[in-house]
Amino acid sequence: MRKIVIVPRREFRVPVEAERISPDVFAPLAIEEIGKIEVWEGNRKTALSDLFEVSGDDVPAKPEETLISLSGDFSKVKRVGENMTRGRIAAEGDLGMHAGNGMSGGEIEIEGRAGDWLGREMRGGKITVLGEAGDYVGAGYRGESCGMRGGEILIEGSAGDYLGEHLCGGTITVLGNAGDFPGIANRGGVITIGGNAHLPGAEMASGTITIKGRAKVLPSYQYLETVEIDGLSLKKFFGDLVDNGKGELYAASVEDGGA
């Protein structure tokens, strides 16, 4: 595996947009050429090497054999791995918004926190976050009717609001809690939340959402039965019936809606 290491030269106040940090782009380039790749710091167009130290193996490799290692604070670096199809990106710390936008293959690993819109409109590949993730994980762009369509997102910590909004396919797993409206307006896909969630599956047309903790369930869901899955006793619901949805919602415990 060819490894390329990128380290910010300084702390960023203004966010950096770096959609070209991607194995597909880096693979055929030598280190010096990678340094010339265009990135934006706010409204200033600049070269990657002006903002980051770039080092590592100099010999081009195939994208699938390329690993980009992000070392240092990338919390304000956006759109890393956008549209990537192969290879790996590993962030040692936090990674900014829109990581893995539209990716269709390869892997992104984030050891710290992921910003909002992680894996937006993702089609394939895998994203793993060891820390927390922001809002709109696996969602679609505003106004679109389809978000993530395929691939896998695993968040070991908690995730923010609107997790998997307009989800049309793929798998999202959160080990911690999810915020408000996970799986809202989804049309497929599988969401599993280890902890709690608020109003999951609102306007769900189809798909499966499982809450292993506590959930506030909408009054437009029909309770069906209690089922055993993987040793857990889960209440099974059907909905969202406001839109004649046919989604399945499972929750270990249910917050009293009338309280």
Binding site: A202, P219, S220, Y221, Q222, L241, V242, G257, G258
Partner: peptide, 25 residues
Amino acid sequence: DYEVISALRMIVAGKGEIVPEKVAG
């Protein structure tokens, strides 16, 4: 608000029997 609106939508659509006896108080 969201829950209350969903409950109203259910009742308007004639699916009120699924709505619990109390919604958000």
